[in-house]
Each structure stands twice: as C-alpha cells, then as structure tokens.
Computed example of a mutant assay.
Amino acid sequence: MDLGDGILLRPLLPGDGAELAAAYTRNRAHLAPWEPLRTAEFFTTARQDEFVRESLRGVHEGRTAAYVLEDADDRIVGRVNLSDIVRGAFWSAHLGYWIDKDLTGRGVMRAAVSAVCALARDDLGLHRVQAATLVNNEASQRVLRAIGFTEIGHAARYLRIAGEWQDHLLFQRILEDAPDSGS
C-alpha cells in the first residue's frame, strides 16, 4: 500500500530479518528513549530472523498483524504491529509502531497507522484498537489524535522503557466511528 513520500506499507515477510537488523541499528539512538533496553544481540540478523519467525507464527495463529514500512530502495524504515488480538466480546488489539529517524514529521506514520486501522476493521473485523505512549512522547500522541484516537487514561509505571518503569497515556480508536484521515 503506497503511503506517499516513496514509502510502502506491506506485511512482514520471511527473510526481513537482515533489513530489520539494519533498520534497528541505523535507528538505535533514535528509538532508545521509547523502547525497552536492547542487548547487542537484538541488533543482529540472527535475532531479527527469530523475531520475524515469532511474529509470523502469531500472524498465522491470528494473535498479531505485522507490517513494515519500506522505502524506494527496499530498505525497511519502520514497523506497525497489532498485538494481543482478542476476539470474543472484545474484538480489540494493541497498536505499536516506529519510524526511521529521517522520516519523522512527514505524515508517513500517520498514514501508516491509519491504513493499519482500516485493515484491522475491514480485514480482521476488529472493533477497537488501543495504544499507549510515554507521557512525554508528544509526536506519537499527535499521530494518534490526528487519526481519531482518543485519550482514555493514564497508566502509572505501565511499561519498562529505557530501563525504567514509566507512566503512559492510553488511547483508543473505535474503528467503526473514527474517520480514515491519515493522509
């Protein structure tokens, strides 16, 4: 799916490990404040190959949906994931995403998250997507608010990020209600 700015959104594929390792290595400092502490092994092709296999197993089992952003040079420049997909009475998932340091502020992630929400609604039949951001991650909050997510709460010491238990703001989007305005 074309997101503009020469960026495509596509499903995660077997064999993406090397490109993911390169993308994470290239963005190591950029992502460090927003992610769990990473060991040196995390940035290797071997470990990313394992993560790809694990993710694709989750996709096959209906627990996750995994996408990458790819530039015109076939480099992976971001990820968007739906995890913890729950059916039954809930029909919901958690959203996670990141983008290459050189693409921030261009609206690419807004378009990618909007597209994934449309896929969650139309292809997966989900009702709701929720997301959490660090309290000080204003850029991520702008992405979510721009495409119809609403803030639903504050979670104290929600996730261990950058080595510390950190507070997060919680957001949700009811997929039938929110406009697809991510472009």
Rank of each mutant, 00 (worst) to 15 (best):
I147C: 06
Q48F: 04
T25H: 09
V80D: 08
D5H: 15
L37I: 03
V143M: 07
A131V: 03
D122T: 09
I85W: 04
Q48G: 01
A131D: 03
I7D: 07
A115L: 11
G105E: 11
A115Y: 04
A132Q: 03
R110A: 14
A89H: 05
S181Y: 02
I152C: 14
H168S: 09
R145M: 13
L56E: 00
L170A: 09
A131T: 00
A155K: 07
A112V: 05
A29G: 05
F43Q: 08
R75V: 05
E35S: 07
A46N: 07
A156M: 10
T25Y: 09
L175Q: 01
L56I: 00
E54S: 08
L69N: 03
H127D: 06
D2V: 06
L144A: 08
L12R: 00
L175I: 11
V68D: 02
E151D: 10
F43K: 04
Y158K: 14
A72V: 14
E70P: 00
V143Y: 03
A120P: 01
T150L: 13
G17Q: 00
R28P: 05
R121H: 11
E50Q: 14
E19G: 06
Q48A: 06
Q172S: 06
R157V: 01
P36K: 04
T104A: 15
L13M: 05
L159V: 01
L3C: 05
H154L: 15
V68Q: 05
L144C: 10
R79V: 10
L103F: 13
L126H: 07
L119H: 11
W165P: 04
W98N: 03
C117R: 07
G88N: 11
A21T: 07
T64C: 09
G17L: 02
P179L: 15
V129T: 03
G62H: 03
I152D: 12
Q166V: 14
L9T: 01
T44E: 08
V143G: 03
Q48M: 13
H60L: 14
G15F: 01
E50F: 06
Q172P: 00
R26M: 08
D177T: 10
N27S: 13
V59C: 03
C117A: 15
A111Q: 10
S92L: 02
P179N: 08
R28L: 14
A40C: 11
L31M: 14
N136Y: 08
L37W: 09
T150W: 03
K101M: 11
L103Q: 09
L95H: 01
